[in-house]
Nucleic acid binder design. Structure first.
Lengths: 247, 247
DNA sequence: AAAGTTAGTGTAATTGATACACTTAGTCAA
DNA sequence: TTGACTAAGTGTATCAATTACACTAACTTT
């Protein structure tokens, strides 16, 4: 970074994608976070991301990051914002890491934020074949991240909330069969507020995206709940901009 | 562009902003389009945009483009999406222009799309002091644009529609005093559908963002309409996510 | 003074949102 | 086996918002 104000166009920036990957374990909303490897283990962890490559579109790059991390393709993935402040990487510890890892450490990095949704039970982060150590962290417990990743995470969360207001997102975050309580907890985790049980059920069931199953919970010390599954057709044809949750 | 598939990170891209600048003339939704100058006058026109500069944040770059074009600062401006397909500039005519104008013509260009709202009567595009020729074009009459600018325009329009569903946008697009009919026509132009007059009026007036004036239209060959103005305080405190227009 | 044009207004029916409490079906421990 | 515990599952009444719909009023022009 030059530190000088100039009128010169930026000629050698790097462009990256950073992914806010949400998961749900039945209780808390989680995020995939990358721990630093041995050499840099004192540094703050980061969101998964990478520089985009030649001949690679932005969406492709984000999909690649996700695939390398989780082994999953064709995931729900959506761009939500670009971040390009000149001082994105100005924190001294971050800068040190960048110098060690990047061939052009002084290059400015513009990053495109994506958010993704995956089932935590489908993703076993960090199989030994992958260099990076990814861990699920409940979103409430995420501490200080590298660069401006806390901000990116926050914006990603906002984008997720907004998305939930116009689409039912459960299908990619819940197992095939699930109880209405689980779905409600997912909504509550995303929206960050509690919902009325009866009103929630009425609204969801009326929308027609769920099919009741004949199976019930087993072994619970209370009245067992019925399982439901998504009706794929109804789910996909769900009209944009319905389902607007306030309570 | 190399034409080869590689795993190399993209090291020398350019980053630009492109702005979809909406205006309203009381009847049609318009967009500011840049005509090519003499030397390239056969080329398709484009959206206003520029490479971002060293030490310049993305929002700053977009604001600069807008200011250079219109002389207005502090405009309503919002980022809506990044575009980064490797073949964005592949059209032969576009490529020729890029070769003539840019110092690194083969560089890939990632662009960040912004949309902005201005009053057409505040903007006299292309004062002689500005090199670029900008013209207002009704959005329905925009023809083929350079690069992927038709797509950017389309996405910008979608973003505008979406925004209108959660915020009343009239204040930046209408003159100080305006009739309810003008406001309704603005909404109809943005949403692309007709609205019921009585329901529209009831909804807008109940929201409290308008103040009636004692002035009426003059010289019209029909019952003159009352003028209104926005109540700035109510307008700015308007709660996100109300005002959800379906009809 | 008649024709033409848009402004301005009200209501009834339907749908959606909200607030709220008890019974049921299971497990577990005494 | 019975009582304690827990979450599932259900209905209703009130209020607010949405929709569909048609006539009179005010002004200009001829």
């Amino acid at each position: 970074m030059s530190g000088q104000i100039t009128n010169k166009p930026l000629v050698n920036p790097h462009v990256s994608v950073d992914c806010v990957i949400f998961g749900f374990d039945g209780k808390d909303l989680q995020v995939l976070i990358i721990a630093r490897d041995e050499k840099f283990k004192d540094l703050a962890p980061s969101l998964p991301g990478d520089l985009i490559r030649e001949d690679e579109d932005l969406d492709e790059a984000a999909n690649r990051v996700l695939f390398e991390l989780t082994g999953i393709k064709d995931i729900f993935l959506e761009q939500f914002r670009a971040f390009g402040a000149p001082d994105r990487i100005s924190n001294p510890a971050d800068a040190e890491w960048v110098r060690a890892v990047r061939s052009e450490p002084d290059a400015r990095v513009i990053t495109i934020g994506y958010f993704a949704l995956v089932r935590t039970d489908y993703v076993h982060p960090s199989p030994s074949s992958f260099a990076k150590k990814a861990v699920w962290v409940p979103i409430k417990e995420v501490g200080t991240l590298a660069f401006d990743h806390n901000r990116i995470l926050q914006e990603g969360r906002k984008a997720l909330r907004k998305k939930l207001q116009s689409r039912p997102l459960g299908m990619v975050l819940l197992p095939k069969k699930f109880t209405l309580r689980a779905l409600q907890e997912l909504y509550e985790a995303i929206l960050g507020k509690t919902l009325d049980k009866r009103n929630f059920r009425r609204k969801i069931l009326k929308s027609g995206i769920l099919e009741p199953l004949e199976i019930k919970e087993k072994g619970v010390p209370y009245k067992p709940a019925r399982y439901y599954q998504f009706n794929k057709v109804a789910y996909e044809n769900f009209p944009e901009n319905e389902f607007y949750f306030v309570n």
